[in-house]
Amino acid sequence: MIEGYDISKNFGFPVQRVLHHLNFKILDGEFISISGRSGSGKSTLLYIMSSLDHPTEGRLILDGKDLKFLSSKDIHYLRNTSIGFIFQFHYLLPELTVIENVLLPARNLGLIDSKKNDAFELLTFLGVGALVSRYPNELSGGEQQRVAIARALIMKPKYLFADEPTGNLDTMNANIVMNMLKEINLKQKTTICLVTHDPDYSAFAGREIYLINGHISERKKDLLF
């Protein structure tokens, strides 16, 4: 479960507050979307939820652990084992093949051999099983993003954070990716937090956090607590 208590985030000088005293709770296995206009603080909230950023004020509890009190080593371990990321850009390493990219998180824990079969299965499930030996620059945008999803899922994370994963894709590939996320959520019970500004993709989620200038919209607030 992800719990946020009184989360605020400031940036820059003079100080600009991007998130204002947000309170939320995301249950295990939920698929939620974070939406809102550009600059409303969607990505900032996602990064705070996923341990990539710290709130200026407030507490973020992930699986009962307050992230503020975790060491850098513990946070990296958490990211490695319990959290998966998908970004708008795939961020695949160009020198590594598809399979090597997917196995990167496993490599960090010395689990390459034991995760190889999982990687093949995941890539097949995502429809890119035939491309394991290719390099990222030999793939289409949709294929690259699917490989990035495989990399995010290889450690079977409890939480998957996706920041506009369809932003660089055409409609067809975007729909494929969204359907896959939905399927992963249903089959593997992975908690998914998706940032999107597209209402069509927001509809894939069971719940929606709608942000307006760093505040959770009154309209949707009842869905949170």
Binding site: H76, Y91, L104
Partner: peptide
């Protein structure tokens, strides 16, 4: 920088 960022995001700590 991008690749280093993603490595950190997927759990590669500063020492790695």
């Amino acid at each position: 920088r991008k690749e280093i960022a993603i490595l950190q995001a997927i759990g590669f700590g500063p020492e790695k």
